[in-house]
Write a protein that binds this DNA or RNA. Structure first.
Lengths: 139, 139
DNA sequence: ATTTATTTGCAACAATGATGCAATTAACTA
DNA sequence: TAGTTAATTGCATCATTGTTGCAAATAAAT
């Protein structure tokens, strides 16, 4: 059923079905957390670095994945919920938790980023809540 | 008076007064925003890359500056308030605003990071609120 | 002025980000 | 099903950033 879902996701976002894209998407679906390029390389082994780099950018452009701000040095991506789309942009209104032990980043869908009073002159387009600590597997 | 303050800050954190450290500290005091290594290099010109790299790490270790999570790819540091110290760690309980136009990062001291309900099993050690948009100078 | 532990600056290397280009291939068409 | 074409890949290449070892330089104490 992941197969079907992957095919549908690719088609829905006007992306050709290639080996790399399928593998990457399957991994995102399976892991259900934010992944850095390195994480993906380690999991998929044979994948080409540049192809993966562009695959992630393409997925981001088309609204399949978004950058997960987790306060780590690594750039991570997470699967988008259905609200994301290439026209209106990304909706990513949940908190991200980054474990300092295993260095994994989890999306906490149940925790929404709070709305804050806008300081004078500042136009806020998005807000992100980053939580750091120790995850349930490491504590 | 910045002179005095710089001297005091260095002495208070048991750091020798060197040219690089003084210049970097003065810049932080003057700019009053989060700075990436590149920003500092551009401002100070002649500074050595590695020395600056280590200066920033040292300042961080000693509790003079902290990492400002701003959701950008760049690692930025901001001057600590007095509550930070090397023993108990960093307190950085205010929001950071990152402007997508000028790419500067401001500390919004008046906006505190909200406390959130802890999900089961997760131990939260710090939380960070990142705001993105357009700053008052760019809008 | 001398001593000593700290700090600097260079060399060197790894990892990551980014782009041009020719070869390959997915999806469409006849 | 074979052929066409635009998208995609993989390589080469380069820039930037992060990191460490080490010898020379230097701040602070004596």
């Amino acid at each position: 059923m992941t197969q079907k879902k992957v095919e549908h996701l690719l088609k829905a976002h006007q992306l050709r079905r290639t080996e790399t894209r399928v593998e990457v998407l399957e991994l995102f679906l399976e892991k259900d957390m934010a992944l850095a390029q390195k994480d993906i390389e380690d999991e998929l082994g044979t994948i080409d670095r540049i192809t993966l780099y562009r695959t992630l950018r393409t997925f981001e452009d088309k609204g399949l994945i978004h950058r997960a701000i987790d306060g780590s040095e690594k750039l991570r991506f997470a699967l988008c919920s259905h609200e994301c789309n290439p026209v209106e942009g990304h909706f990513d209104e949940h908190a991200h938790f980054h474990c300092k032990v295993c260095e994994k980043t989890y999306c906490l869908e149940q925790i929404h980023t709070p709305s804050v009073r806008v300081p004078k002159g500042y136009q806020i387009e998005s807000s992100h809540l980053v939580l750091k600590g120790i995850c349930e597997h490491c504590s």
